[in-house]
Design a protein around this nucleic acid. Sequence first.
DNA 1: GGTAAAGTGGGAGCACCATTCCGCTTCGGT
DNA 2: ACCGAAGCGGAATGGTGCTCCCACTTTACC
Lengths: 219, 219
Amino acid sequence: MPPRRTTVTEERPLRADAQRNRHRVLEAAETVFSRNGNGATIEDVAREAGVGVGTVCRHFPTKQALLDEVLNESYRELLVALDAALGAEEPAAAFDWYVHQLAAQQAKRRALAEQMASELVMTIDEALKREVRTKTAQVLERAQAAGAIRDDISPADTSMLFAGIAQITAVVGGDQPVRDRYVAVMLDGLRPAAATPLPGKPLRFGDLDRLKARQGRSR
Amino acid sequence: MPPRRTTVTEERPLRADAQRNRHRVLEAAETVFSRNGNGATIEDVAREAGVGVGTVCRHFPTKQALLDEVLNESYRELLVALDAALGAEEPAAAFDWYVHQLAAQQAKRRALAEQMASELVMTIDEALKREVRTKTAQVLERAQAAGAIRDDISPADTSMLFAGIAQITAVVGGDQPVRDRYVAVMLDGLRPAAATPLPGKPLRFGDLDRLKARQGRSR
DNA sequence: GGTAAAGTGGGAGCACCATTCCGCTTCGGT
DNA sequence: ACCGAAGCGGAATGGTGCTCCCACTTTACC
């Protein structure tokens, strides 16, 4: 009966060495997924962790489950950045900072970039996702209120744009100056100064989910 | 000894029915790769074409070879758009038009989008690639000369940005209004009005190639 | 320290796909 | 109409990678 969550307890307490191993596996997974994206194999993870594949598979019944766990972790980190942005004094600068931060995290964790670029359909924890979305919306809205970002952009629009950033990030990799360059272009496109009204209607998150779901299915 | 080019002659003339089949296979490949990206299997292609897998594999010794052929075709279509843009009266509008056009083609041919998003390393015909790059540069430079696009952007920069567009396009799919929305944001980011100087240095095509190669290898 | 339960390693099984092979079919020159 | 070569289909092959299984080891409780 395989245990599930990262947290220490659930079901039956989980033996000490098992806990250690589970942790190692997660770390290894993060390492190799960051390096190779979701193309990395379970064996890669096992080798990195110094355990057998069986161990990996018992802790995480499926490669997807493992990936999900790692990605949830990434989202939790994103949340930290979002909180920082919300706590900042300057809403305008905070939004820019957050976007750069996001790109940096995508660069660090290639799997995150790929997920945001939506090559794969992950099951992220619903509450977590909602929180990320809510806070993203807040950071955006504060920047808009401050006049730093054009008004005809919705939170879901930014998510879509982040997918584009993710792709560029995946190509550019760790080269920060180059990455920042394109983030800056996108941010400039979001300034109110660029007053050409945008075509179409602001996207809602519901639309976004539908689009990504469709994309996932058609593979 | 499998034949190679799309053109009618080479090596030994190729029997009439074989030629017909080759053509069907190419069309089928375009259809299924457009629908499913490069995740489509050879069997999918064969079924769509109404031939056996053996036939597909004889005409194109490798799945990659088939994909390359299809993608080269896409690039040729791109060239048509580029020529149109170069022939246009209004260099400023022409650039915008071309970028929208590019996104539309990416939407039509998912495989193209994925290639530009550089998930896969294709071997595009060198001459063709050079021509696309040269003409892209010309379209860009004319728009810059007309004051429609900021000067601190290089042709390779636009290619990189196109990769981001490709990603968004892959998610959005055929929904033109939505797609255009994000293309418009990016274009606004490229206006001179947004005069915040960009960080970093303009990318050169050499850098771009290196980055993409690195990305391909690390999978 | 002894023992039952929990955990482990890594090989076997399985599914999926690109590619190859070969006996049969179709073409096209005479 | 004939026949040799070219082309065809699709079963067989081989490789890759996820998942399952089970004989062996480690833990933790007495």
